[in-house]
């Protein structure tokens, strides 16, 4: 059982409020390109919205792939996060993730992924349509 966010993506309107608040929380700016949740509005075809984020899977291949051991366990929550200070930006985690759950920051210098905001995911709190659940 993964410990990450659950999404009822059929209800998602693509408003990006999750990504807006995520970027504010993690970077101090409104900047969806630095968000840990990625909203893809795919129109006209297939006419869907896709949400990418780390689902905190049990296998966590990113942890094993990281040569710098920069993906660390938050013991309290039981989920892994990227330690930005130790991340070398090699991108191994991005390549190995089967869920498109992590990606490079726009600066290309380190990887970013959901850390559940230390236990109170901001996106879950703000989603106006109740798409996201913890």
């Amino acid at each position: 059982m993964s410990k990450g966010l659950k999404a009822d993506v059929e209800k998602c309107t693509g408003c990006q409020i999750c990504a807006i608040v995520c970027s504010a929380h993690h970077t101090g700016k409104f900047n969806p390109s630095e968000s840990r949740i990625n909203v893809l509005d795919m129109f006209p075809e297939p006419g869907e919205v896709k949400l990418n984020y780390c689902i905190h899977c049990d296998e966590h291949p990113c942890v094993e792939a990281c040569p710098a051991e920069a993906i660390k366990l938050n013991e309290e929550l039981g989920v892994y996060y990227v330690d930005r200070e130790e991340c070398t930006g090699c991108g191994a985690c991005v390549e190995v993730c089967p869920y498109d759950g992590c990606w490079m920051d726009p600066s290309e210098s380190y990887a970013i992924k959901c850390d559940l905001c230390g236990g109170t995911p901001q996106c879950v709190e703000v989603c106006p349509k109740g798409v996201l659940k913890r």
């Binding site: 309107t13 693509g14 408003c15 129109f43 006419g47 919205v49 106006p128």
Partner: peptide, 19 residues
């Protein structure tokens, strides 16, 4: 009607994707 669609930062989503 297919699904509701919103603009950036909108909690209303007045738009409907129709097909």
């Amino acid at each position: 009607f297919v699904r509701k669609k919103a603009c950036f930062g909108c909690g209303i989503a007045c738009g409907s994707w129709a097909k």
